[in-house]
Design a protein around this nucleic acid. Structure first.
Lengths: 228, 228
DNA sequence: TCAGCAAAATCTGAATGCAAAATTGTTGCC
DNA sequence: GGCAACAATTTTGCATTCAGATTTTGCTGA
């Protein structure tokens, strides 16, 4: 959501294909909650919003359907996939399976430069929490975990991880994160960094999985209070 | 074309959308090797092949691009994603992460009926090997592992697993599987079934991961002899 | 023979048009 | 007042069309 794609006026940007702009733009709208969970999304609405014709827009909707962010029903248009606690649990579980793998392999495949970079990210994250900057915190947090995933040097895994992250992020935007949980989470990050620096495979895997589960539990609890 | 939407040749009912027919159809063409690795695929060719216009076809290509089976370059058309040993290793690694999770949770979530069904699948698989029916064997083998994945009751994971399977299957169609490896593989399946019947979580996980790694090694070895 | 360049043909990206399906609004009846 | 049937509007699925980019072809001259 870094740039408002509302104008067709950004035509000079001919580098990225319109199709990609739309996929990213609509994804952001969904993740940020600008399009509400379960809401019906007429093509014409998005066409006006982005100032494009239906052809590239429909291509984008098909892609987002594969990503699971919208659901398409024949002749009945698109709806934003509802955020369902059961499905979110599935997402966290699946992400957990990847976290385990990341833990087992990140330590051995990371260079010292990698570790320094992630250490810096972690420090930024602590700073964002201190300054009570939730937007920056959330972004840095996503980045921190994504960088850990990248340590596997496995693009296939990273791509899947990113898609799962997007779905989690969507749920995160729907709830008010508990500040106490944020501090707890930072403590878990500390433990993760300790294991990573020591290149302790099993420890790292265990802590990543535990962190994922804690986060899952906290989010599902909050989602229960403020569902759909 | 003169093809009216209602009678798209191989669409008996009007239930499945043309778009889905195309995605499935082109995916099959790629997986089975009918479209060769790295081959350039002009839209017009596929339009003639399926008797449709470019609009739904392009939608299908965008979807397959997200699945990673084709690569789209702006203004330069689609190419079938080359089968690369490094990428295949990544795919197996990622699948391995899921296998571990499947092992940990399949046993506890499976009903007795599930076990009976998978037992039957396993028996069929043994039969297919005995009768030296490689086509049927391959299909049953995919099914066997997919059913194990389904035991997690996690649709998110199953969807990702299926996509990974498709990519593995594509590589499998490019090589001649070693009969000795097939027998070895069946032995590993036996061990998997034993652990599953005993509902031994850790055992099952370990054996699924090991089976995945053995299969990976065997395929990568064969792929080295006859590369993309 | 071959490198370099220009014109033609081909291909892709995106907009528009049209028919079928679904949604909405209205009427008539109980 | 409520509800079923029907007509009008909207929306979707797909084909067709247009414009721009790319690749191929064909020519020229060294």
């Amino acid at each position: 959501m870094s740039q408002q794609p509302g104008q067709a006026a950004d035509a000079p940007a001919d580098q990225p294909s319109l199709h990609r702009v739309l996929v990213d733009g609509i994804r952001d709208m969904i993740v940020c909650g600008e399009l509400e969970s379960g809401e019906r999304v007429p093509e014409a609405f998005l066409c006006r919003r982005f100032g494009v014709s239906r052809t590239p827009l429909r291509e984008a909707l098909k892609v987002l359907s594969v990503e699971g962010l919208v659901q398409l029903r024949r002749n009945r248009g698109a709806i934003v996939t509802p955020v369902d606690p059961d499905r979110l649990r599935d997402i966290f579980e699946t992400k957990g399976a990847l976290e385990h793998f990341i833990g087992l392999h990140a330590a051995s495949r990371a260079t010292d430069a990698d570790l320094a970079r992630i250490d810096a990210l972690h420090a930024d994250l602590v700073g964002a929490e201190r300054r009570a900057d939730p937007g920056r915190y959330t972004r840095l947090n996503e980045n921190f975990h994504l960088e850990l995933a990248r340590l596997t040097r496995n693009p296939e895994l990273v791509q899947i991880y990113e898609a799962l992250q997007a779905k989690v992020l969507r749920a995160r935007f729907m709830i008010n994160v508990d500040p106490a949980r944020v501090r707890e989470s930072l403590g878990e990050h500390e433990a993760i960094m300790t294991a990573l620096r020591a290149r302790a495979r099993l420890d790292l895997a265990e802590r990543l999985v535990a962190h994922n589960e804690r986060t899952s539990e906290a989010m599902l609890r909050l989602l229960g209070d403020a569902p759909g």
